[in-house]
Amino acid sequence: MKISGRVWVFPDNVDTDAITPAKYFDKPGELRNHILETFDKTFPKEVQPGDVIVAGKNFGCGSSRETAPDVFPPLKVGVIVAESFGRIFYRNSVAIGLPILECPEVSKAFEKGQQMEVDLEEATVKNLTTGKTIQGKKLPPMLLNIIKGGGQIKLLKKEFKAAAKKK
């Protein structure tokens, strides 16, 4: 599974309140315009389908709100590569089938606007602009299967279908 795109770079400790501020939860349509704005005001305005995110340590720390990873598939953000993740954000990304990769050196290897290519199985992260490749942490097969299967709900429904056929 290879994913490539234009890079946005975020610092350490980006929290889920910043990704999806709770004050817009009951204003349908508004939330989209405020994603990550406290870290980069241009992001909600200029993010394009196919873009990818690079971040420092502890990306997605804070609340368990699943709205945080949930906003990225509709924006068609292909993958998030961070030095480390808040553990619930990590779990939630896997659960919804959003490609995600830990890569300890990634912040230093990219600048905003460069092109990145990620091989999710091999956990390799290539800067297509500079030509340099760095190694991330391989996803365990269990999690890779959930992501490739489109997330937990899809897999659950598949399981139900199989069980229904058996009977």
Binding site: S64, R65, E66, P69, R87, R91, N92, A95, Q152, I153
Partner: peptide
């Protein structure tokens, strides 16, 4: 005891 999201909770 640990926090999870609503999709994991559905499972």
């Amino acid at each position: 005891s640990a926090g999870i999201g609503n999709t994991d909770m559905t499972v």
